[in-house]
């Protein structure tokens, strides 16, 4: 028995399980309060107080929401494809949580450091499109179908530019491991009289902007929220969902936002790197950057109007894709030139 627990594979599996469960609960807590802050920020941007009745300053609002959703009547349309209808919400949440297994949160808190961590994230974010397309198709509702098709086309179009913009970072770091990428961003970069941190946002600004725009599109948030465009498509792909299944799509959206923000922090904003804090507390830098980025997500959502669909597709294919390709070539040439000087 003891020999079984001392087996290295069992050890890795056990500590992996512990860390994953911790991350799951931390993420659920963060997501619950993200919905609250989203509504608070929306309220203040629109000069109203936001939720403020449940508990002090409305702080218990997320729990009230969760309880309400948990007890709501569930409904499955008669002509729906039942199996796919049930699978879609599972697919909406699972990839976001799974890709968190490769995100380096702090120097001492990494669930697993695989040497293709970035590819794991990209693979998982590609899976997210199935949830929306299957939900839209299996509902057997015209609005849901249109929403699902739109979201599928949108997500795969922006995934191209997203994938290409990360190549600049890989060129500079020389590795696909997210831990190596974070280590490559430690130290400072001389910039005239100043010393900038060696974050890839300063050496790859174009890639950072492309990645951020694609992150908004991949998470289906305004100004790219056409899949749910309520004024034209009722609710988009989740029109027919109710109760906890609807909540799963909502949870998936916020978890995706959390995951893609943490990957943005890892790739461009230096991950856990930051001054002053000792190594054991450096994960606080990670969370600080993460929440600053999520605030940006919310700020953008409540500031910009929705794009038109042809504008959205034209922007992804005709603007972001060529710029991302040029950025790859320019970065490659620069890395070669600097390396041979």
């Amino acid at each position: 028995m003891i020999a079984f627990f001392q087996d290295p594979t069992v050890q890795i599996a056990f500590w992996g399980l512990v860390k994953i469960v911790v991350i799951l609960f931390v993420m659920l807590g963060i997501v619950a309060y993200l919905t609250f802050f989203e509504r608070k920020i929306a309220g203040h941007i629109q000069s109203r107080p936001g939720p403020n009745l449940v508990g002090p300053w409305g702080l218990f609002q997320p729990f009230a929401d969760i309880l309400k959703l948990f007890l709501k009547e569930e409904f499955i349309p008669a002509r729906a494809n039942k199996i796919l209808f049930h699978i879609a919400p599972i697919l909406a949440v699972t990839p976001a949580l799974t890709s968190f297994a490769v995100v380096p949160i702090g120097p001492n808190f990494i669930v697993t450091d695989v040497n293709v961590g970035l590819l794991v994230f990209l693979a998982m974010s590609s899976l997210g499109v199935y949830a929306l397309a299957l939900a839209g198709w299996s509902s057997n509702n015209k609005y849901a179908l249109l929403g699902g098709l739109r979201s599928a086309a949108q997500m795969i179009s922006y995934e191209l530019a997203l994938g290409l913009s990360t190549i600049g970072v890989i060129l500079l770091a020389g590795s696909l491991s997210l831990v190596d990428i974070v280590h490559a961003q430690s130290g400072t970069l001389p910039f005239g009289p100043l010393a900038l941190p060696r974050w890839f946002v300063f050496t790859q600004p174009v890639a950072f902007v492309i990645f951020l725009i694609c992150a908004f599109a991949e998470t289906n948030r305004a100004p790219f929220d056409l899949p749910e465009g309520e004024s034209e498509l009722v609710g988009g792909f989740h029109t027919e969902y109710s109760s906890m299944k609807w909540a799963m799509f909502f949870l998936g959206e916020y978890m995706n936002m959390l995951t893609i923000s943490s990957i943005t922090v890892t790739l461009f904003l230096g991950g856990w790197n930051g001054p002053w804090l000792p190594e054991s507390l450096q994960f606080l830098w990670f969370f600080g950057k993460l929440f600053a980025l999520i605030f940006l997500f919310m700020w953008v959502r409540w500031t910009f109007p929705r794009l038109r669909y042809d504008q959205l597709m034209a922007f992804g294919w005709k603007v972001l894709l060529p710029i991302a390709l040029l950025n790859v070539l320019a970065t490659g040439a620069a890395v070669y030139w600097v390396g041979n000087r």
Binding site: I12, A13, L97, T98, V111, T112
Partner: peptide, 10 residues
């Protein structure tokens, strides 16, 4: 074995 935690997360 580095991939095991990803499977567990799934």
């Amino acid at each position: 074995t580095a991939y095991l935690p990803i499977l567990i997360a799934l």
